[in-house]
Every structure is written in structure tokens, then in C-alpha cells.
Amino acid sequence: MKLLLPHRFKRLGAAMAPLGFLLWLLMQKGYINKLLAYCFGQPVPGDDRTWFQLVNIVAAILGFFALLTGLYFIAFSKEKVEDEMVQSTRLQSFQFAAFLQIIVMIAGFLFVLLAGDPGEGGIMLFFVALVLLFWVAFIGRFNYILHFKYR
């Protein structure tokens, strides 16, 4: 319980995580470039112009870390009433998320074995998705049990 953040961090995390993900997604889809080109009246660069690339890198870092920090805030915030059932549910949700992550990891490796190497970018994306899967599964199950199943 000493490692948990005050309850108010949950709302902050609930705002940060989707905004961070949206920023990262916009960067990935090239909308940051389009926005910069519109704002500064320049065409979208075909090559990696320094300042366009720099803004994209900053957006990617900010977005991704906002997503991770938001997920951390949601996952490690106290509930309004912290009791033994909440703590038990939290532990079970961690176990569930870890189990799910292992299953998906094994499935991923089997996929690579059968379908062939997806390349370095594909492997990296897979591992990033694996990390996010753990936290999303933990947060999803924990909140489902507390706020929907036992409402």
C-alpha cells in the first residue's frame, strides 16, 4: 500500500494515457508533419528535414511517455476505499496480466517461426505492444472486477 499513489492520480492518468497515445498515433500517421506544413506554409518534406524530424521525435517521446506515465498512474493509484478485497483483486489482476502476456509472447514466437522474420521494426513493435498489453490487461481486469462485476 505504501507504493500506491493517492486516488486523485487515477483521473490524471485517465486523461494522460489516451492523450499520449493519440499524440504518438498522430506522429506515426504523419499528421504532425501535415500540421507543421500547414502552420508554417511549407510543403510536407519528402526527406528527413531536421526540424520536422526533431518535432516528430519530441512528439513521439512525449506521447509515448505520457501514455506510459498515465498507465502507471491508473495502475498504481489507490481506490477510494482500500481494503483486503481490493488488494486481493489487484494481485489476481497482476497474475492474469502476466499469464496473458506469456501466452501472447509464446504465440508471437510461434508466429515468427511459422510465418518468417517480420524484421527488426516488427519485432520491436511486438515487444512494445507486449508491454502495453500487460498494463492494459491488468487495468482492464482490475477495474472490471471492482466497478462492473461487483458493482
Partner: peptide, 22 residues
Amino acid sequence: VGVSRQTIFSIEINKYVPSVVL
């Protein structure tokens, strides 16, 4: 008893076994 309403609900429907203290 110092717990959440969800805990009482889950005890009543036999989905959660409370600790000795509770």
C-alpha cells in the same frame, strides 16, 4: 466495518472469503 461496498456485496454472493479480522 471499514471496507468498500463492493467487498460486502462480494461476500454476500459468496464470491469473496473475508479474512479472519474482517
